[in-house]
């Protein structure tokens, strides 16, 4: 956009202001403010799922009430997060599972995206659709589909027994392997699509040039193709990593009843124990852990959009 077409702030008409104001106010009211409330309640004292929480802030009371409010804030929720090993191990487990599955997704997703980008142009639209289609098919249904397959007498074990690969049916459901299968399955399109979008626009002559100058193909791939695909790789990895850390449905339906991921802990704290301040504290710490990837994602996303990937 050239400076000449850019309306200056003072010169905006009411119509233009409304275009900004309406969605802005909506997002502030229903996205930003709720997070502030979570933060506030995380500092409240436990009162069985029933507001009002103590302390309450009366803004009309001036500085004196504010000081009183601050002195009554409770860090009990956070103290429990540190003292109870359940929470720490949940966070650790979530981060470890998210890291490992993002790595798996990258290893599996990159060759698919690469193949798609090299396909003849007339096929690309179809291939793109084929990858997008399951991505929009209900998340819950896709996880459910694996419940049938991974059951003890499910299709996977039936196939393994029929092929003579195993003698006794191994246990799949309620294991970490089932969680990884579920995650890789549901998040694969999130990894493939951004990488494909970057590879598709890539200038192949750079790779050719490196190869012509005597660089071995694998080395040219590492030194030219991969660095050029980096924006897509970063976007895809963040797009997978961030939501996987907070994943609830997959570990709940496919995982065991033992160790929990942090999304399950939050869910249990909220719906099971009805301890809202504790659930809020879990959410605030989770958000704090994710703030760096979130900011990075926003930065990458804004740049990709401007470049028109």
């Amino acid at each position: 956009m050239t400076p000449a077409t850019q309306p200056r702030a003072e010169a905006r008409s009411w119509g233009q202001r409304l275009v900004i104001l309406i969605p802005y106010l909506w997002l502030i009211a229903f996205f930003l403010v709720p997070f502030l409330i979570v933060f506030k309640i995380s500092l409240s004292q436990y009162a069985t799922a029933q507001p009002p929480y103590l302390p309450q802030l009366d803004i009309t009371g001036g500085f004196e009430t504010l000081r009183e409010f601050v002195s009554e804030l409770s860090f009990a929720g956070y103290a429990r997060l540190v003292s109870d090993s359940l929470y720490l191990s949940s966070y650790g487990r979530s981060l470890a599972i998210a890291l490992a599955s993002t790595a798996m997704l990258l290893v599996l997703g990159f060759p698919i995206a690469y193949g798609m980008a090299r396909a003849p142009r007339q096929w690309q639209g179809v291939l793109f659709m084929l990858i997008v289609l399951p991505f929009w098919t209900s998340f819950l249904i896709r996880v459910y589909a694996w419940m049938t397959i991974l059951q003890r007498d499910g299709l996977l074990n039936q196939a393994l027994l029929a092929l003579g690969i195993v003698d006794t049916p191994p246990v799949w459901i309620s294991t970490d392997i089932a969680i990884f299968i579920g995650i890789v399955y549901t998040y694969l399109p999130f990894m493939v699509l951004p990488i494909y979008a970057t590879l598709e626009r890539m200038d192949e002559s750079l790779f050719e040039a490196a190869a012509d100058l005597g660089c071995p193909r694998w080395k040219a791939f590492w030194l030219v193709t991969v660095p050029l695909a980096l924006p897509g790789i970063i976007a895809g990895s963040l797009l997978c990593f961030i939501p996987i850390v907070g994943e609830f449905v997959i570990p709940d339906l496919l995982g065991g009843s033992g160790a929990m991921m942090i999304g399950q802990t939050l869910w249990l704290e909220f719906f099971g124990n009805r301890d809202w301040p504790a659930a809020s504290a879990v959410a605030v710490v989770l958000l704090a852990l994710l703030i760096v990837p979130l900011v990075l994602y926003q930065h990458v996303q804004a740049r990709r959009l401007e470049r028109g990937d």
Partner: peptide
């Protein structure tokens, strides 16, 4: 993560 948005 949806659990955070939902809770908030």
């Amino acid at each position: 993560p949806e659990v955070i948005t939902g809770l908030a």
